[in-house]
Write a protein that binds this DNA or RNA. Structure first.
Lengths: 213, 213
DNA sequence: TCCATAGCCATATAGTCGTACGGTTTTGGG
DNA sequence: CCCAAAACCGTACGACTATATGGCTATGGA
């Protein structure tokens, strides 16, 4: 066998370069040549690892959404380990998705850029659908768990609540991204977003966990 | 003076062609040549009326958001004329913004496509900001009017409620666009979206108008 | 009637992009 | 040691694109 390389690592490296370029200069700046330069490799190497630019973009998008999902999963695991109430864990998870600081703002920009292209790219659209379904699944599971432990009233429809929370965090994210400095009455928008999410959660998580108090 | 033409009408005609192309085949399909063909004019004429492609896209975006705004204003005027409760008028206005049929779906697609490009185009971003502010302004005014006539409790913060409603309709629109066929429990997503919006409105518009009953 | 000028068009131009292609370099196994 | 095959590179090609340019056409006013 000839010389070997870590195939997956190279693909991730190149995908990371895509994300870097999109975050820095927007989706249109993510040309193959620019991505190769950002990754410190040649155009030929990018072609060696990705059959087409579309495949590259798809992989990069999956990478981004996967990374975000992993961080949310980590937040949930941490919250569970610390035996925090479900509503608190969910609040932290949703806040992670909002563009509240430069890091999350960059990530949001990338995610939204891909979502915009998903409008006319079926492959990207299916990733977007899967990502959204994943978030709603986690939220739905959280509500269901809440019903079991007493934080949520028995009659609540978990899927409905999840859909509503997902929509709210989505819309708040858009507003935060577009006008991070906006003021709403005496508060700034980030505070309003947190508060609004908190209120929405309080409407669903109305009780206390009976397992530990 | 030489021959004359209706300058504004021509610009609107070309802008309408942009919208048609974006709705049909996505933002990337909106090349100058394609837009000219769609409008039934030459490339040169497009250049005659727009100094650059960016200016054309900006004008088209303003056209789209303006049209939507006009329709919402019309719905509000109609509702007022029929002396409908504010909550009903607001519900109809927000539903108009959701991709609930093919017409609104096409419009949503166009609006979202422009919003996606606004991520790295300051001119488009400012239109997006103005559009969002306009919607929130209308919602805020509706809540304030509601407080005056008794549909809304006195303590409610109109701007806060408007921000929340705008976020919700935005997020619901995204979900509807991406998965119009999705089922949530026993209902389909369009029904769930209407219901969710209705519930959110019911939380703000808790009373009845004391002026006419 | 005439012509300046806006309306309108076809084509040329300069540049960018994705990808194809031919090449060199490296290295694991025989 | 050797060599096949993978890793990797630079460049050329073909397809588009936005825009510049020059010219033709029609008409309102003098």
């Amino acid at each position: 066998m000839p010389r070997t390389a870590d195939h997956d690592a190279r693909r991730r490296q190149i995908a990371a370069a895509v994300v870097g370029v999109v975050a820095a200069d927007g989706f249109d700046a993510a040309t193959v040549a620019r991505v190769a330069a950002e990754a410190g490799v040649s155009v030929g190497l990018v072609q060696h690892y990705f059959a087409s630019k579309d495949e590259l973009l798809l992989f990069a998008y999956q990478q981004v959404t996967g990374d975000i999902g992993d961080r949310v999963a980590q937040l949930i695991a941490d919250g569970d380990a610390r035996r925090q109430p479900i509503s608190v864990v969910v609040a932290a998870s949703l806040a992670e998705l909002l563009p509240l600081d430069e890091r999350r703002r960059g990530e949001y920009r990338v995610a939204r850029a891909f979502l915009g292209r998903a409008l006319d790219n079926p492959s990207l659209a299916s990733v977007a659908r899967a990502t959204a379904a994943d978030l709603r699944g986690r939220l739905s599971a959280a509500v269901t768990n809440g019903k079991e432990c007493g934080e949520v009233a028995p009659g609540v429809d978990a899927e409905l609540a999840a859909t509503r929370l997902a929509a709210l965090v989505d819309g708040l994210g858009d507003q935060l991204y577009l006008e991070p400095q906006r003021r709403v009455g005496s508060r700034d928008l980030p505070a309003v977003a947190r508060r609004t999410l908190g209120e929405a959660l309080a409407e669903t998580f109305t009780g206390e966990c009976r397992h530990y108090r």
